[in-house]
Amino acid sequence: MDYREVLRNKHRIVVKIGTSSLSYPNGRMNFHSISKLAYVLSAIRRRGVQVVLVTSGAIGVGAGRLGLTERPSELAKKQALAAVGQADLIKIYQKFFEEYNQMVAQVLLTKDVVSIPSRNLNAKRTLHKLLEMDIIPIINENDTIATNEIEFGDNDTLSAIVASLTEADLLIMLSDIDGLYSADPRTEIRAEIIHSVLEITPELENLATGAGSSFSTGGMITKISAAKICLKDGIDCIITSGSDPGILFDVLAGKEVGTHFVAQKRKTVKHA
């Protein structure tokens, strides 16, 4: 059965991009990637698909701006860098999206958007309104005020929550690895990419968390738990490589790239 067929007919997608896809290994911004991402998302929007972008990178950009060579470990310092960097990051996105005449908005969320009903409703309504206005909301965690108690912790979880909030029908997580593998691809030559996942079994979770597989620290654990949130809400979910944002076209064409977590009770979004 071709599970990918459904991906050709999505109406509201959330794309999550990580720091590693937005910057070079030395921590500096990769404008080429960001520019390409802006182009691809604007093109997808132009086709009538509503797009939400969840982005990381504020702390890294802040560190670059201040000429720091290492990311700080202290919480207050990280939050300060995020406050500097988020302003720069949104500016860069604006600049590139403007080249494609695509309007963007900045929405910063804290985790209580899930637990406080009035906050939830407000965020939901604002996001829907923005989508209705043909705007691409660019979402990040509001790092500056986040404490452990209200921290999403990682943008994978944030992106799944955003997918639920916006009632999206697809979440695409762009990562530094091109999908979930049957074993650690760096050490096992027989490791194969798993293209379709119908159910997140304990065995599968072990693949991501399994002892001795250092690739699990590359964020696969949080990606699997994000995928779980999506499946629970009937939202299809893709994990694939973010090294070339053009891959988003392939995903939406139903090509077999990355790992597809196949939603069972599928959510349907009415065409806007």
Binding site: G62, R65, L66, A80, A83, V84, Q86, A87, D88, I90, K91, Q94, M103, V104, A105, Q106, V107, T126, L130, I135, P137, I138, T144, I145
Partner: peptide
């Protein structure tokens, strides 16, 4: 949500003239 991004950009530009870094909170 649209305007805040513009607003902080405006502040950044204005303060850049005086080599002053600003942060958005």
């Amino acid at each position: 949500a649209v305007g805040q991004a513009e607003l902080i950009r405006l502040y950044q530009r204005s303060f850049d003239e005086y080599n002053q870094i600003v942060a958005q909170v």
